[in-house]
Computed example of a mutant assay.
Amino acid sequence: MSDQPIRKRRRLGYLGMMGLCLVLGLVVGTLAALIDAVGGAATDALQTGLIIVCTVIVAGICIVWWRDADEAVREAHKWAWYWGGSAGMALVLIVLGLASWEVIDLAPTNFQGDPADLIMTGVGLTLGAQFVGYLIAWAAWWLRHR
């Protein structure tokens, strides 16, 4: 047995994680703007590479954060993503069902853009609804367990 103290892993903390994500967002945003400004034949390849590299970095950040999180934090996030994300997805499915039964009309009347923009809007709204559901469920979990 050694007389040396056990070294604990340094925790980044919530504010440190948010700061790291802010810096990463600023770097990616700046690089994306530079890629758009320079243009050229390699624009699509550079943007794809930027998205892949950013995704790998964010996944690494999430893994480090998850390993440092205690059991209560992990349980709160799992519960919130399951119930809140599911509720957000259910809301989107209800809207989709109403649109498919022609109860509501989701297509803008004077839309003159690319149809892919409508798909991206739908994806963004779905993720947004899931995230709002997650935030509500996460807050509810913490309020109940305080």
Rank of each mutant, 00 (worst) to 15 (best):
L98K: 01
L118Y: 06
A32P: 05
A140N: 02
A45F: 08
G85W: 01
A32V: 03
I57E: 01
I136N: 04
A107N: 13
I6E: 11
T55L: 14
L135M: 15
L125K: 01
L26E: 01
E102C: 05
A116S: 09
L96Q: 03
W138F: 13
A69H: 04
D114P: 01
L98Y: 02
V53H: 00
W142P: 01
C62W: 05
W65C: 05
L31K: 12
G40I: 06
W83Y: 13
G39R: 05
T121H: 03
W142T: 11
E102M: 15
T43F: 05
L91S: 00
I52L: 14
I35R: 08
T109G: 12
V92C: 03
L22F: 13
G29S: 14
G133R: 01
V103I: 13
G97W: 04
G122A: 07
I63Q: 12
G40T: 10
I61N: 04
W65T: 03
I119W: 11
P5A: 11
V38S: 07
V38K: 13
R144S: 09
L22K: 06
A80H: 03
L50E: 06
G40K: 15
I119Y: 09
A137G: 04
D105R: 12
W141F: 14
W81V: 12
L96A: 14
V23I: 15
W141K: 11
W142F: 13
E75N: 09
G133Y: 07
I119E: 11
N110T: 06
T109N: 13
M17Y: 10
A37K: 15
A107M: 15
G113W: 05
W141H: 12
G84S: 08
W65P: 01
F131K: 07
R67A: 07
V58N: 08
I35E: 02
T55S: 15
A37F: 11
L24M: 13
D44H: 09
L12H: 06
G25E: 06
L20M: 11
V53N: 00
T48I: 11
G60K: 14
I119D: 06
I61K: 02
L24Y: 01
D36I: 05
G88A: 03
V132A: 12
F111Y: 15
W141V: 04
A33S: 13
L20T: 12
W66M: 07
K8M: 14
L15V: 12
A139G: 03
G88E: 03
E75G: 04
V92I: 15
W83Q: 09
V95E: 05
W66P: 06
A90G: 00
R146P: 01
I94N: 00
S86T: 12
